[in-house]
């Protein structure tokens, strides 16, 4: 069974990049265009891991983490934040909100897969 990734990013470019990399690596890929949509579709999609951008309209990445962590049943799903902010406080803030890890943009295929591996154990 393929590992299912729910990617939440308002940038079509990033969504396409993620889709290309993840689908090639054998992941199942579902995307949402902003935080609100991501949270709304979370239950239906039931992903194994969530990748979310931080800066998004409607609901930002922190909001996504808080809402997903807010419900007990979901509290364990790994959430990776996509961030160009290499600033430590951004990561700290994401982690305090309950993020599992982070992927720094720009990412290459290997670091993306490596990050996913560390939070899902799956190579695909």
């Amino acid at each position: 069974m393929k590992t299912k990734v729910l990617a939440i990013d308002d940038s079509r470019t990033i969504r396409n990049l993620l889709a290309a990399t993840l689908e090639e690596a054998g992941f199942e890929y579902v995307s949402a265009v902003d935080g609100r949509e991501g949270v709304d579709m979370y239950e239906d999609v039931a992903p194994d891991v969530v990748i979310t951008d931080i800066n998004m309209p409607n609901l930002d990445g922190f909001g996504v983490i808080e809402e997903l962590r807010g419900t007990d049943i979901n509290s364990k799903v790994p959430i990776l934040v996509l961030t160009t902010e290499s600033a430590p406080e951004m990561k700290a803030r994401a982690r305090n909100a309950g993020a599992t890890g982070w992927i720094t943009k720009p990412f290459d295929d290997a670091s993306l897969i490596f990050a996913l591996k560390r939070v899902t154990g799956a190579a695909a």
């Binding site: 799903v77 959430i79 939070v119």
Partner: peptide, 14 residues
């Protein structure tokens, strides 16, 4: 650590 969704098991796998 457990509340962030990190799993020792997966780290070991890596």
């Amino acid at each position: 650590m457990y509340s962030t969704g990190n799993e020792p098991f997966f780290l070991f796998q890596a």
